[in-house]
Design a protein around this nucleic acid. Structure first.
Lengths: 242, 242
DNA sequence: CGCCCGATTGAACTCACTCAAATACTGTGG
DNA sequence: CCACAGTATTTGAGTGAGTTCAATCGGGCG
């Protein structure tokens, strides 16, 4: 039985904007269903044209691009609350794939409803655009990281960013949270080899900044990581939830 | 005297969508002015909150992020037709700067008009969102390039992308076009050192694929560059012009 | 028990970086 | 008109951060 938008568990989190009952009513209408995806399965396939949009209700995955020879660049980790598929709906070709890492549950929207939404619900259209801008903003940071930072800085940067995202989802307890991805995924996100990513993580552990073992990340010193990564502090605000 | 939208020189190019006279009339109204920026001057400053949006009418520049210690990542080259400032308008902090490389002329829009536009001109809001999606799409490609490709592949990739953008602006004659940037800029865009960028360009020249001297780029073999860069062909379509 | 997958560590290599110096061009001032 | 300073490009030489190859270890599972 699909979750009703007016009873959305994500909406209760402090990190997401709240909506009026009427707006929630409309969202329920906009949502046409729910699907479950198992680990390893594709949600969106590069090149294919998906007629759907999704909001991640639960579970995590990776968004990535592949070169023809198999190299893979993870462009972002996909987490609950993320709105997926806007580019596909606007542009005609999809430039990336999304694959589930844990079991995922997604709210499904119809691509063809986007236009009506722009026409009749400018607030929601505005929110969607906000989310795309936010995603672009993140990609810019990631690009700067991969292009300019050293391996140590990159890993430190990633840990801070991931930690903050998890915290916004209320999943961090005293710097500790369980992180379902492999080191290979982090390597592919940072443009590093698996071996070097591992060795770099060991360095951070030795310095007492953070550790990652058996699926659990422990951030001992966020401030130290942030400084090491040469990144400035950002105040994360509430964001819309589609 | 500012250019009137109904007489916009960019709009005549085949790469941009055309608008009805009524729509053009509205755009003229939306546009509140025009400004000129000299080479080296900032258009948008990181951290500052600009109350304005711009469309590049003429001239070129660079969009970049800087780390506190001065390292610089160019996230895109800014060219005529580009719409600037959407993130600033949506998000509250600006994550990048834009600096003019050549003299630039920009159409100016009021940030506060965005909301009315979403409410009353859904088609234009849709176009703006399209442009943001397109920009994000590009950033994804750039990220995959910097994260996964070798120096030779990166430079080849950049030349193909740049060549195609210039072609869409009607500035390419038989693979030849004048490119106003420095090699340092390309290096900062690709996450390479200036020296290595230069040596890599020399390699491409030796292979007869492309050359870049005295501000003029010559793409002798676009197909060869594309293959070398392990990139797949993309059909570039008409895009909206705000 | 044996197999597969992910994490970890060691060793050798290499691509790209830094340092350094030469060339060429442009604008400025004497 | 020339000297000079500043900037961009080019090339050589040596170094090093990160890669690839390889082997080991440990846990989960059929």
């Amino acid at each position: 039985m699909p979750t009703d938008c007016s009873n959305c568990p994500l909406r209760r989190l402090p990190g997401f904007e709240s909506l009026s009952p009427e707006e929630l009513e409309f969202m329920s209408h906009f949502k046409v269903g729910e699907i479950d995806v198992s680990p390893g399965q594709a949600v969106v396939i590069e090149g294919a044209k998906s007629p759907q949009l999704f909001t991640v209700l639960d579970g995590m995955g990776v968004r990535f691009r592949t070169l023809e020879d198999g190299r893979r660049q993870i462009t972002n980790f996909v987490m609950p609350g993320d709105f997926i598929g806007m580019q596909d709906a606007m542009l005609d070709d999809i430039g990336y794939s999304i694959e589930a890492t844990t079991p995922m549950t997604l709210c499904v929207f119809r691509r063809s409803d986007i236009w009506t939404l722009f026409r009749n619900h400018p607030e929601r259209a505005f929110d969607m655009t906000w989310l795309v801008c936010s995603e672009e903003h993140f990609m810019g940071s990631a690009l700067a990281t991969v292009g300019q930072r050293s391996a140590l800085e990159r890993v430190a940067w990633a840990l801070v960013v991931i930690h903050d995202r998890f915290r916004q989802l209320g999943r961090v307890d005293n710097g500790i949270f369980s992180f379902p991805f492999r080191q290979q995924d982090l390597a592919d996100a940072l443009g590093l080899s698996l071996v070097h990513t591992n060795k770099t993580l060991a360095k951070l552990r030795d310095r007492g900044l953070a550790s990652w073992a058996e699926g659990v990340v422990r951030v001992f010193d966020r401030e130290g990581l942030r400084k090491l990564a040469v990144m400035d502090e950002v105040v994360r605000k509430v964001r819309p939830l589609i």
